[in-house]
Write a protein that binds this DNA or RNA. Structure first.
Lengths: 183, 183
DNA sequence: ATTAAGGTTCAAGTTTTTTTGAACAACTTG
DNA sequence: CAAGTTGTTCAAAAAAACTTGAACCTTAAT
């Protein structure tokens, strides 16, 4: 809440406080992260950045959230990977600083790209493998049953593949209605 | 370890074998389960039932998958809850027997109902709580920033709420194209 | 070249989740 | 009602996931 700053624009040593509402939002994202299968610390970090107008350095994040260097580093990497944070470099400051991506469309499509698409890929490979096993199946009845199952799975795979673009599209809709400027 | 069976139609003692392709499908579902944040054993159990034409008893499942009674019991309960398995009772057999629900539409909507909707509910409560905290925030600037965030989150919440029905609808589409009879 | 700051890695420690199995409840049957 | 099934519960064990922090890069300033 207070911020005794010296030369650095970073929060330094003291000023390691979150307002109550910030803590609530961070906790909200912490839970959201868990519910979509991401580590808690990702949620916390994102939540913190989401709350702030100014960009924060990795150190700021460690101090405000009381997490270790390792968590902060790995968490930020994952968030970058997901497209959930962007880094900015202030001139003549060596530190990398971070801001949250707040366009839902971007968040969702980043998430789907990193978490959804790889699974669909892997699924395709598994289906191929399954077909091979079925070609080797000696028992005719069993092979027939297996092929029925293979067809079902292939159909599911196609449906899920079709779904993703729609999700991005639907979420993208009206994302911008709630924002003044954008992109 | 051996069980001298008798009248029961259940697989008994021997016949505790999966074909290679069945094992592959079970493993596929095991991974799929993990990737959507469900316990592995749920995936395995569902996968096994998915492979079989005949219904299986809890005992069959324990033996074929080598899992404990507890896992089987809890896993089946969760799958029923998700609408991913249905139980059938053979006449004059006391055992409950299970079959997999293979309509993707049902699977997806069950999953969303159990996993998605509760989170949206909780989110609503959290947003309420956030508003209360913001009303108590003393610092005017901070409160203003907080309200901007609250509006963003409220918008996201609305969008996600809108998304679910579409997902069910899109997945439901053409589900039946890949099946001879249905519902 | 040396020192220091900013960041990354990863083995080890911690926490959380999942699985197990023995005890127990509910029912049937002889 | 004693004995045998079937299935549930839950505390403890095992496994998986997450976090930590010290060692280690890399780059910048002296």
């Amino acid at each position: 809440m207070f911020r005794i700053s010296s030369k650095s624009k970073s929060l330094s040593s003291s000023a390691v406080l979150l307002t109550e509402w910030e803590a609530a939002i961070i906790d909200l994202f912490l839970n959201a992260a868990q519910s979509v299968g991401l580590p808690k610390s990702l949620g916390q970090i994102y939540g913190l950045l989401f709350c702030r107008d100014e960009s924060l350095s990795m150190n700021d994040i460690m101090e405000l959230l009381n997490i270790s260097k390792g968590s902060a580093s790995q968490g930020l990497r994952a968030l970058r990977q997901l497209g959930a944070v962007n880094s900015v470099f202030a001139r003549n400051d060596r530190k990398e600083r971070f801001v949250a991506e707040i366009r839902l469309r971007k968040l969702v499509s980043g998430f789907l790209k990193e978490q959804g698409e790889p699974h669909l890929e892997k699924g395709l490979a598994r289906l191929d493998n399954l077909r091979n096993l079925l070609d080797d199946e000696g028992d005719f009845k069993s092979a027939k049953r297996g092929r029925r199952r293979e067809r079902i799975l292939t159909g599911w795979h196609r449906q899920m593949s079709r779904l993703l673009p729609w999700v991005k599209m639907i979420v993208g809709k009206s994302d911008r209605l709630h924002r003044k400027s954008s992109d």
